[in-house]
């Protein structure tokens, strides 16, 4: 998040850019919204074993990231998972 965002609302140009970035990655990788939804649900299921998470605030998407090996960019799965509370008892298992 840039400092500008504190001063003004995100401009529509930036919104367009962000939307496109996400859209094109899924276009290019042929990753359908249904598939993303499945991945999301599986993630929730797995993480929930260990901690209480905010399922509604969970955000996953495929983005581009710089590859370490070659100089091109590669797709990456990005997930933002807000944690409500750690399940301390899970440590016992």
């Amino acid at each position: 998040m840039s400092l500008m965002d504190f001063f003004k609302k995100k401009s529509s140009g930036d919104i367009a850019k962000d939307r496109l970035k996400l859209l094109l990655v899924s276009d290019r990788s042929n990753c359908s919204p249904e598939l993303m939804e499945k991945i999301k649900n599986d993630i929730i299921e797995v993480i929930s074993k260990y901690m209480e998470i905010d399922a509604d605030g969970l955000d996953i998407s495929i983005t581009q990231t710089e590859s370490d090996s070659n100089n091109g960019s590669v797709p990456a799965l990005y997930a933002n998972i807000p944690i409500k509370e750690m399940h301390h008892d899970s440590k016992k298992n």
């Binding site: 401009s11 140009g13 367009a16 850019k17």
Partner: peptide, 16 residues
């Protein structure tokens, strides 16, 4: 429009 931030600029498009 680019100045107002209401249109993607050249760099944005090229990057994508």
């Amino acid at each position: 429009m680019v100045k107002r931030g209401d249109m993607m600029n050249v760099e944005d498009v090229c990057e994508i």
